[in-house]
Each structure stands twice: as structure tokens, then as C-alpha cells.
């Protein structure tokens, strides 16, 4: 564990808590993509199957259980409890266009051709693009509430901090996972446009609204 990794994890944790607070306090899931949350649930479920096969640390186990628990709770809020506020018309990204190529790629490019390994690789690839339905929804409605912007900023920062963690680990420990690094770079690049809007607008007290 290094400072980049810890900050990355805390940023990820903060993102999830910000999203839950937004939904709980406003009693609304407006502006939130249910499809992105379903993809994240798929990511966590696939990646954390190793909860049953290997123990790493109390910290590791607690974080995994928390991530899985909260993402399913988020889905429950979107599709059941606050269903009336869910904007399904604008959440129209075709997720099969992500799932199918990502699944194919996980089969073709992995560290080892074994079931758990392919599922892990699938989760890494899928995570890198799982935010696309959310970004698509914002581009469609042309705006994002400030609290949603904070959520996205924290969520995007998490993988960017992981990139710093991997650079550090490469020099400090000789650690290098090409699949995670490439997917992490792709994931971070997808947020760049949003990061720009966040810094130029949200940090100056304005909300994100795109020209029609």
C-alpha cells in the first residue's frame, strides 16, 4: 500500500458515498445512469469472486464487500425505491455494444486462459468503459447536477491515482500488470473531457451545462 493507492481507494469510496448521499437526500435518482451502475455491479461481482478463493487482508475484504453491497443498493434505489425519478428515456446507451466486444477481448487477451482469470480480465476491461452510459446521458440531457459532477470527479480521479500507484509500484516493487495499466489509461482518458469541464466550471461554482 502506498499513498497513491490509498488516495485512489479513498476517492473511489468517496464517489460511492457521494452518489448514495445525493440519491438519499434528494429522494431522487435524476441524472444518474442505471446502466452504468449495472455495469459497475457486473464489474465488482466478476472481479471480487476471489473473495471466495483467496484472502489478502481485512482491508481488502471489507472494501470489496462494501463496493459490492453499495452498488447493488444503488441499483435498488434507481430501479425500485426511486424508480419514479429515474430518467430512462435519456439512459439509452446500448450496453451490448460494450459487453460483447469487452467479453471477446477478455477471451483473446488475458494473462492466463483460465475461467477465473478471464472473468477477472473481463471486469478490468468492462470497468474502463462502464462510465460511458453515464457520460452519454449527460451529453444527451446537456447538463449535470453539481453533486453528480462531484461523484464523477471522485470516480475518475480514483483510476488516475491508480496510474500513479502503478508507476510507483513498477519502480519500487517491479510490479507491472499490463492489462490493468492499459485499461486504466483508457478509463482515465474517457474522463479527460469531463475533468476539463469540472475544473473550468464546477470549481468556479457553476454547474455543467453543455451547449445544445
Amino acid at each position: 500500500m502506498n499513498i497513491f493507492r490509498l488516495c485512489g481507494d479513498m476517492s473511489h469510496l468517496a464517489a460511492i458515498i457521494i452518489l448514495l448521499l445525493k440519491m438519499w437526500k434528494t429522494r431522487s435518482v435524476a441524472g444518474i445512469s442505471g446502466k452504468s451502475q449495472i455495469l459497475f455491479a457486473t464489474v465488482f461481482t466478476a472481479r471480487y469472486l476471489d473473495l471466495f478463493t483467496s484472502f489478502i487482508s481485512i482491508y481488502n475484504t471489507c472494501m470489496k464487500v462494501f463496493f459490492i453491497g453499495t452498488v447493488y443498493f444503488t441499483i435498488y434505489l434507481i430501479y425500485m425505491k426511486f424508480k419514479a425519478t429515474y430518467d430512462s428515456n435519456h439512459d439509452s446507451f446500448r450496453v451490448e455494444f460494450l459487453i460483447v466486444p469487452v467479453g471477446g477481448l477478455a477471451f483473446l487477451v488475458n494473462h492466463e486462459f483460465a475461467p477465473l482469470e478471464i472473468i477477472w480480465t473481463f471486469s478490468i476491461y468492462l470497468e474502463s468503459v462502464a462510465i460511458l452510459p453515464q457520460l452519454f446521458m449527460i451529453s444527451k440531457t446537456g447538463e449535470a447536477e453539481t453533486i453528480t459532477s462531484h461523484y464523477l470527479f471522485a470516480l475518475g480521479s480514483y483510476r488516475a491515482l491508480y496510474l500513479c500507484n502503478w508507476i510507483y509500484r513498477y519502480y519500487a516493487e517491479g510490479f507491472f500488470d499490463l492489462i490493468a495499466v492499459v485499461a486504466g489509461v483508457v478509463q482515465t482518458i474517457l474522463y479527460c473531457d469531463f475533468f476539463y469541464l469540472y475544473i473550468t466550471k464546477v470549481m468556479k461554482g457553476k454547474k455543467i451545462s453543455l451547449p445544445a
Binding site: 489478502i56 494473462h111 491508480y162 510490479f175 500488470d177 490493468a180
Partner: peptide, 10 residues
């Protein structure tokens, strides 16, 4: 072996 998998990460 150079490649080590990030299984201790989240």
C-alpha cells in the same frame, strides 16, 4: 517473471 497481477488491488 516481470508481469505480476494486480490481485491485491481493488
Amino acid at each position: 517473471k516481470k508481469a505480476k497481477k494486480g490481485k491485491d488491488e481493488l
